[in-house]
Design a protein around this nucleic acid. Structure first.
Lengths: 328, 328
DNA sequence: GTGAAAGCGCTAACAT
DNA sequence: ATGTTAGCGCTTTCAC
C-alpha cells in the first residue's frame, strides 16, 4: 500500500479511500491509484482492514449437514436474500458431534463476522448465547428465546398434525412415525403427530432414527424384521428418512402406497421426482433462507433487541406415495 | 488480553503463549491465565492473531454447486483428510456465473487463507493463477497446469469410454450422450464417449444439458418431442442428469432399461437406491476429497513447486437401469 | 520462563 | 480533497 501510494504520488490514506471506492476522491487521483495498484499487483489485506474497521461485511452460515438437499435450498434463499447487500457469506458445516456446531460458531465469532445464520442448531440456547458473545444471529428451523437471536421456521407442530390428518382422511388408522433421536431439541413434529393421533383416538407408534436415508431404511428394516404388525401408513421426520423407508418397503416386497403409504417432510427436489413420488410437507426452505437473510439485515441495521420469531405455515403436497389406491 | 494478563498477574506475551497452548509455559501460570480468561470471558481475536502471525491455519474450499450431492461426499473426504491437522475449513459456494468463482477465490486470498481447494472450477488457468497470487491450491475433478496448483481427479476420458463399453457389451448400438454445455472445460468424458463410439464403429449422438436433474429431464423431453429415433441407451454426464432423463422416459411411458438403458456418472448415494437403481460410474468423490486434503497438507509443508496431478481409475457399478432385460 | 518494544497492514479521526 | 497521527489486538524478536 505504501508502494502504491508512492507510485501514484499520493498518501496511503488516499489509497485506502480509493480501495473502498469512497466518493470523496477526485477521478484523476482515483485512476492514478488504480493504475499503480494494478501495476504493482496490489490488493488490500482484508484481515488488516477488518481489524482496523470493526466491520467485516461477512456473515457466517452454519449448516448441520450437507447431505440433506434441503440445506442447498436454504443456502439459495440466503444468497438471494443477501444479494446486493454487500455482505459476503462464509459457510461452515457442522456434524453429528454436538460440540462441532458450537466450535464453528465460536470460530465465526473469533473471526468477527457481523452475524451468524444457523441452518439447524441442536445445542442449548445458553451454549449458543455464550458462544455468540453478543454477535447477532438467526436460527432457521427452530425457535430460540435468546436476546439478539431471531428465529425463522416452519410450524413443525402443524406439519406433524397435517401428515396425520391427511393419512386419516385417506382411511388410515395404523399410522407410525419415524422420528429423530429422542434427545434432539426438535420435538414439535412428533408432538403434532401425537396430538393429532390423540384427536382421532388412534394409538401412536413411534420409532427413532437419525434423519438420514440409511437411517430410515434401517429403522424400517428393523421394524419389519421384528414381526410386529405393519402399519398402513408412515410419517417420516424428513424426506430423506421417508425415501429410506420406501426402499426398505420395496426390498420387502411391500407396495407403496397400497401396502404402506408414506409421507415425508421438507419437500426436497427428489421427492417430486416421478421415480419417487413422495408425498411431502413443504417447509418452504428457500423462503426460510430468504427470510433469515432479511431478518439478519434488519438486525444488523437495527441493533440489539429481543428475539423475533417468524413462523411459516407448512404445505402438504400429495403425490403417489399416498395417492389413489392407498386406502387400506 | 491486557486485562487477562493483569488479572492473572502475568505479561501479555504469556497470555498469548497460553492461548496457543505453547509448551514453554509453567502449568501453574497456564491455569492461572486460563482461569482469568474464563472469568473475564476473553477469547482471542483471530483477525489480529492472523494479521500478526502470517498464518491462518485455514483452508478455503470452493464448491461449484451445493445441490449436487457429490459435493457433500467430497466435503466429507476433505474434512476427513484434514482431521487432526489443526486446519480449519472455510467454505464458499460458486454459482453458474463464471465470475463468482474467481470472486470467491480472490476473497479467500484477501483473507489470507493458507490454501484453496476448488471442488470444480470452470474458468481459465490464467485467471485462477492471477486470483491466487501464489496461494497454494488443489483442484478437484480437473487437471490444471499451473505452478503451485495440484490436481486430483478421476479419469474422465476412461469414464466415458467405460460407459460405452458397458452398453456396447449389452448389445446397444444407438448410444446417446447427454453432455454439459459445450463451452465448459470439462470435455474428457465426452471425448471418452466419442473415442469409444468410434472404436466400435458407432455413430455418436450428442445432446447438451446443464448438469442438473431438471436439465436432464428437459433435454430428454425435447429429444422425445423432436420425433427423432430414440436411442436404446443414454450415457449422462452425471447422475443428476441421468435421473432427470429417467424421469422424462417414465413420463413418456418408456421403460428403463427395456426401452432405454441409462448410465450416469458420480455414483451419488441416491443412484444406489433401489427406487432408482441407476448404473453409474463411481468417481470416488470421498477419496478425491481425502486426496485433495492430503495434497494440500503436503504442499503447505513442502513449499512451492510444479503442479502434481493424481488421477484415479473410475469404477462401473451396474444396477437396474442397465440390468438384465436391457438387451435391445 | 518472562517482560518490553516494535510491528502486521489497514482505517479513522482530525487537521489542512 | 488530501495528508497526519493514532491506534485495531495480537505475535515476535530480543534481552532479562
Amino acid at each position: 500500500m505504501e508502494d502504491v501510494a508512492r507510485e501514484a504520488g499520493v498518501s496511503r490514506a488516499l489509497v485506502s479511500l480509493v480501495m473502498r471506492d469512497s466518493p470523496k476522491v477526485s477521478p484523476a487521483k482515483r485512476s492514478a491509484v488504480l493504475e499503480s495498484a494494478a501495476a504493482l499487483g496490489y490488493s488490500p489485506n482484508r484481515l488488516a482492514s477488518r481489524l482496523a474497521s470493526y466491520r467485516t461485511n461477512t456473515l457466517g452460515v452454519l449448516f448441520l449437514d450437507l447431505h440433506n438437499p434441503v440445506f442447498a435450498d436454504i443456502y439459495d434463499g440466503i444468497a438471494d436474500g443477501l444479494a446486493g447487500s454487500g455482505n459476503q457469506v462464509m459457510v461452515a458445516v457442522g456434524s453429528a458431534d454436538p460440540g462441532t456446531e458450537l466450535e464453528a460458531v465460536r470460530s465465526f465469532v473469533d473471526l468477527r463476522v457481523d452475524g451468524v445464520i444457523l441452518a439447524g442448531y441442536t445445542g442449548s440456547p445458553e451454549d449458543l448465547a455464550a458462544a455468540l458473545r453478543g454477535t447477532p444471529a438467526v436460527v432457521i428451523t427452530r425457535e430460540l428465546e435468546v436476546d439478539g437471536v431471531d428465529s425463522v421456521l416452519c410450524d413443525d407442530f402443524r406439519s406433524g398434525a397435517l401428515a396425520v390428518e391427511h393419512l386419516h382422511g385417506l382411511g388410515h388408522r395404523r399410522i407410525a412415525h419415524v422420528d429423530i433421536s429422542e434427545w434432539l431439541p426438535y420435538t414439535a413434529r412428533r408432538e403434532g403427530y401425537l396430538w393429532a393421533m390423540r384427536q382421532f383416538g388412534l394409538e401412536p407408534l413411534l420409532v427413532h432414527s437419525d434423519m438420514t436415508e440409511r437411517g430410515g431404511r434401517a429403522a424400517m428394516n428393523n421394524f419389519l424384521a421384528s414381526g410386529a404388525a405393519v402399519p398402513t401408513a408412515v410419517f417420516a421426520h424428513n424426506d430423506l428418512t421417508a425415501i429410506g423407508i420406501m426402499e426398505a418397503l420395496a426390498s420387502h416386497g411391500l407396495a407403496v402406497p397400497d401396502d404402506v403409504a408414506v409421507v415425508g417432510c421438507d419437500n426436497i427436489e427428489v421427492a417430486a421426482s416421478p421415480l419417487i413420488g413422495l408425498t411431502s410437507i413443504d417447509q418452504h426452505a428457500g423462503e426460510l433462507g430468504r427470510l433469515a437473510a432479511g431478518a439478519m439485515l434488519k438486525r444488523l441495521a437495527g441493533g440489539p433487541g429481543p428475539a423475533v420469531a417468524r413462523k411459516l405455515e407448512p404445505a402438504l403436497l400429495v403425490r403417489r406415495s399416498t395417492g389413489p389406491g392407498a386406502a387400506p
